[in-house]
Design a protein around this nucleic acid. Sequence first.
DNA 1: CACCAGCTATAGACACTGTCTATCAAGGGT
DNA 2: ACCCTTGATAGACAGTGTCTATAGCTGGTG
Lengths: 287, 287
Amino acid sequence: MDLYQIRYFLTIAELGSFTKAADQLFISQPSLSVGIKKLEQELGISLFERRGRGVLLTPAGQVFQEKAQGIVAQYQAVRQDLEQFKEHPTLRVGTLHSIRGYNLAQLIGAFHAEYPNVTIELHNGYLQELQDWLDQGKVDVSMTWLQEQDDSNTSQLLFHQPLTLAVPESHTFARLRSVKLTDLDGQPYIARLNCEFWRSYPKLFESAGIEPQIVYSSTNEEWVISLIRAGMGMSIMPIWTDLECITYVPMLDLSLSRAIGLKWRSQQAFEAVAWFREFAMAHDWQV
Amino acid sequence: MDLYQIRYFLTIAELGSFTKAADQLFISQPSLSVGIKKLEQELGISLFERRGRGVLLTPAGQVFQEKAQGIVAQYQAVRQDLEQFKEHPTLRVGTLHSIRGYNLAQLIGAFHAEYPNVTIELHNGYLQELQDWLDQGKVDVSMTWLQEQDDSNTSQLLFHQPLTLAVPESHTFARLRSVKLTDLDGQPYIARLNCEFWRSYPKLFESAGIEPQIVYSSTNEEWVISLIRAGMGMSIMPIWTDLECITYVPMLDLSLSRAIGLKWRSQQAFEAVAWFREFAMAHDWQV
DNA sequence: CACCAGCTATAGACACTGTCTATCAAGGGT
DNA sequence: ACCCTTGATAGACAGTGTCTATAGCTGGTG
């Protein structure tokens, strides 16, 4: 059962005649006879009742007609969907949880203004999730933390984001120009569990001979910020611009910084990815 | 875009590999490469992202996958529907309005007992409608009034049905052995508008020099019966067995009778029609 | 860094089959 | 009884889907 046979069948059924259908389909009448005969043999049931003048659908033929129309409709629908996609492609962007929505919103907004036909789907996830999604094709490009081993063929740097100490603006640290690691000893500390550096913190604290007091830990950046703002503690974190009631204090003996950039798949041919990369590179990142 | 290409596409998409799909489909891997390439060219968009290790669906490919599954499902559905039809064919029987359901119910019931897999659809209609439905293939066989010109290739007689006078059992006529046409003069008469003889009645009455009083006319046989039963009048009509409160009185000088039989199309190959014809012939018709 | 294993793309040959022309057989209408 | 129309059949041909052989590419490995 092939598409051409269904097209033939439907035309014959509609016109009630092999000859007329042959004219309309721009093929010869014997081609129709053979095609329908094969279809009937394959289905094991007669679809047309041959009469002296034209043909008539058998009961089975009428059953077949209804469904066949649905099949042809779906063929047309899938073509239409793909045309729709070509006109309005959907770019799926993976974004790291610890990148603030605010930064991204500016980029997405500007991109959409320049490429209004591209729909952007944001998929928020953790570092490993983003990599998996990229590998599995669930996202087309990711804005994520770049590591040294990342190839320039599959990634590009956007900006460096320093990690400094965030304290409530009411805290005594907020008036200092800088602090040292040892100053953190005994201070209430809020652990950011999703931070890529989190695993290295115990060693860091140990080597400095300090022991901050972990009062809270959270996987949610926004909650961490709320906790700091409420005066519950402090945390080493990327600088998020325009956060009220929070002050960032540089750390003299610690220069943590993470590289944020785009990652994609090497063989990726989706043109919207190229547009997005180019656009993100040209974007003025205020970090 | 052909069915085989869709099948290929779906298998590759599922397994994420041309080679594995080729093994599963029992074809060679180059056949898949060529087939998918043609599909992509026809659709004008890339469906797979070729990577060193297997392939991945592009965004467009994912769009296509969803719809393609629907198409394959419909192919399977139409086959299943036809298998269903072969097992449980539907025989569409046209029946004349003026044939009482009761008579037919016996036949249908007995037929269904012998052919339990055949579903019967009854289509009630007037003489001309039945002929049209038969010609248009909307019914497969009709139980209807046979006329002289009907060919034995497309019709067969079931029984003759005499038309006699039906009167309320309380009427004085009900005690008579027979009546004559002239006895109808001035009597309240109920006209059966769907009767095939209706057009000949005025001439009939005129030639007998009588003028019955047409008190009601109806296209609905059941209503006519109800009216007679209620004592509103009498009517010449086919004998319907076991009607309570109604008496049939033979008419001495009128022998109307209609031939009831089956009609079908000459090239009709639907086997259920042959079964029904055979069964109806063997049926014991109590008229 | 070169090698190997695994995967897809390409090229050319072949076989299948959908289509064509020519013709036949059957029904319907005059 | 004749003719016209319609669908079925036969045989030739062309288009194409599939095959084998092979090249090109990628990713992992010693």
